[in-house]
Design a protein around this nucleic acid. Structure first.
Lengths: 226, 226
DNA sequence: CGGCATCCGGGAAGATACTG
DNA sequence: CAGTATCTTCCCGGATGCCG
């Protein structure tokens, strides 16, 4: 019957005027914030999102995308021809959630239970750079690199004590780094020597090796809160 | 059988090295962040928490407290005699999550779906002040008030363009305000005139009325993201 | 293949009653 | 007052299948 359609209330809300509580109404469901994370560097397709979020099932991803769209956090867009492919992208307001993601990441890195050796998506690595970048260590540095992480290319650079992290390849770069997010995390946060990774074939660098070495020195993990 | 005790694995984690994902492992479960919110201004008892979080059930609150304690976000403490009462309080690290809560609140206030007329806890109101305080409007202001919100007293003040929000009564104050969190939210964010609220008996002010009026002018809701 | 509906099993959340 | 026990309901996760 159609009656059950009408009765489909029970949108489980906290019913709390507090902004924090409302934020949880908007993106407190399981996986929602990680979907937002994956869109933080630009539009993605359904399949890309799924591949970047190991463990999410297709129907849950569909539900989250619907909910986030209904709440105005993201929108569905069709890429211009000839691609003509459907993608999901954050609204301007959704994009403004970035500092929250970064702050959450910085805070949780101090957890004794945090395991940096787990899998990592390319976008998550880029955002982690923003969380742990230390401008004071970057004085006078000016570098631009291309990171090839799987099928995707990213631009990473430093100029005027500011960090640049974008999706897509840069026009010019000092070095091209081909590797995986996990390997780069080991290099930058785990202080694994670059030569070791190259020896294992886990990382290939073409161009100025010093650029990557310098870059890796700009990040510091916050102390554990034991 | 005892076998089922052994099989109780399945601690549902995102298994993601990303700090944001780990933050969700730590406090992404339903109600967890609101429990943290209620502890942000100091230790509380089980019953206080329950009363401040309408909708949470006792067993869920128990589970959240256990989980947050296991993760090092909060600890159980016994108040010194003669109180000798058990309370929950945030660890130093847990306290550091405050900017996250405030940022979430500020962001979500821009949601078209946000309804400021819903119920509000006293602690949530205090934290909302921190989210929406505009130092530029507070030049030269110096005031201290006591807010009596139900059984609890709070100190609210401004000095040197900085906002003070604490639990407990101040030693000296310019005014004593007795009301509810919802009424004060209407005054400060809804711009309901003070005289109207007094006329309804929803708010009683003893002392310098101008202190409260000046205070109410220091906050601005961020624009909607329609 | 990408996107979405449907069915099902397990587990977490919600409501209520009960206990020290 | 501070939880525990129990039952129900709903959400999540996985599999399958439809359709453009």
């Amino acid at each position: 019957m159609e009656l059950e359609k009408i009765t489909k209330r029970s949108y489980r809300s906290y019913d709390d005027a507090c902004g924090t509580a409302h934020a949880l109404d908007l993106l407190g469901e399981r996986w929602a914030l990680l979907v937002v994370r994956e869109l933080m560097l630009g539009p993605r397709r359904f399949g890309d999102l799924r591949a970047s979020l190991p463990g999410i099932s297709a129907n849950v991803l569909t539900q989250r995308l619907e909910g986030l769209e209904a709440n105005g956090v993201l929108r569905r867009t069709k890429l211009p021809p000839p691609a003509s492919v459907q993608v999901y992208e954050l609204t301007e307001w959704g994009l403004e959630a970035e500092p929250i993601l970064v702050a959450l990441g910085r805070w949780a890195t101090r957890s004794p239970r945090h395991d940096p050796a787990l899998p990592l998506s390319a976008v998550a690595l880029m955002l982690s750079f923003r969380a742990k970048f230390e401008p004071d260590k970057s004085g006078g540095l000016d570098l631009a690199m291309e990171f090839r992480l799987g099928p995707e290319a990213f631009t990473v650079g430093v100029r005027d004590r500011r960090l640049i992290t974008e999706r897509g390849a840069p026009l010019r770069s000092d070095a091209l780094v081909t590797s995986t997010p996990e390997t780069l995390a080991g290099l930058i946060y785990g202080k694994v020597p670059l030569a070791t990774l190259e020896g294992q074939g886990a990382l290939v660098i073409d161009g100025d090796r010093a650029a990557l070495e310098n870059f890796a020195g700009l990040f510091e993990l916050p102390p554990k809160a034991d």
